[in-house]
Amino acid sequence: MEILFFLLETAFFLLIGSALLRAWMNHLRIHMRAQPGRFVMALTDWLVKPVRRVLPRPLAQGRIDWGSLVAALALALAYGVIRALALDLVYGADLSAAASLSMILVIGLKLLVRVLLQGLMVLLLVYAVLSWVQPQSPLMATLYRLCEPIVRPVRRIVPTVGGVDLSVLVLLVLLQVGLMLLG
């Protein structure tokens, strides 16, 4: 049963992470023609496009991609429903409707925050490693645009040590602390 939970969580993690990355890329006005834009759109179009058609006009326009954010939230809540039902079936927990609803919300929102924190960690790790190993990579320009708004405020506070920028390392530690608090 743990293997099934793991596979289910991994699938939802990938879908939610793609929806959140799509929202971030749209917010930063990064073209979706290059990677990871094409991959993200291939994974999320089936849900984001219908959500955008249902959203009220003021939310459908503007700098915030509400369609992708609502899709990520819907996926997280769907995971919460599936996980709560599976826990109910496997362990026979007979919960009231209010307890079931709160459990669904907690499971879904916890996954959403975890995907956000771990997704940022992956982006920052790839950004840091690629900046050392292959700084002229075509992917580096996209990673720079994705990570720089997050790194810039920390870079103002954390001084360079011996010519080395430690802001990404500080962010990784903070994200890890956030994951520990979430767990």
Rank of each mutant, 00 (worst) to 15 (best):
V151L: 11
A93W: 15
L109M: 12
V90M: 13
L120A: 08
A78K: 07
V115S: 02
L116G: 09
V129E: 05
A93N: 13
V113R: 04
A71H: 12
E148Q: 10
A99P: 06
M103P: 02
Y144K: 09
L89S: 09
V90K: 10
W66Y: 14
L87Y: 14
P138C: 03
V90T: 12
L73E: 09
L112D: 01
A98E: 03
I107A: 14
S137W: 04
I150D: 04
V122S: 10
C147R: 02
V106G: 08
T142I: 07
W132E: 13
L125F: 08
D94R: 15
Y144H: 12
L73I: 11
L143D: 02
L73S: 12
Q134F: 15
W66L: 07
G62A: 09
Q136T: 11
R152Y: 13
L87Q: 14
A76N: 04
W132M: 12
V126A: 05
L111W: 01
E148N: 10
A86H: 11
Y91C: 01
Q136C: 02
A84V: 14
L85D: 09
A76V: 01
V151T: 11
A84T: 13
Y127I: 11
V126K: 06
E148D: 14
A98G: 02
V122P: 05
L89M: 09
L116A: 15
S100E: 08
D65P: 08
V126P: 03
V113S: 03
L116P: 03
L69R: 05
L120V: 05
R145Q: 11
L109R: 02
Y79F: 15
M121Q: 15
I64Q: 01
A84D: 10
R145W: 03
Q61D: 07
Y144A: 03
L75V: 04
E148T: 08
L124E: 01
A99C: 08
I64T: 12
I64M: 05
A74M: 15
R152T: 06
A84E: 14
G92M: 01
V106W: 09
L87K: 12
A99N: 13
A99K: 13
P153L: 01
W132S: 11
A74R: 14
V115H: 03
S131R: 09
I150C: 04
L112K: 03
L75P: 06
R114T: 13
G67W: 09
V126D: 02
P138L: 04
G80T: 00
G119F: 01
A76R: 00
L143H: 06
K110D: 06
S68A: 15
I150V: 15
P153G: 04
V154I: 07
R63I: 14
L143A: 03
A97Q: 10
S137I: 00
G108S: 01
V81A: 06
I104D: 00
G67M: 10
P153Y: 02
L124T: 00
L85G: 08
G108K: 01
R152V: 13
M103F: 15
G108Y: 01
L77R: 05
Q136W: 05
V129L: 12
L87M: 13
T142F: 02
L109V: 07
R156Q: 12
L101V: 14
A78L: 15
V133W: 15
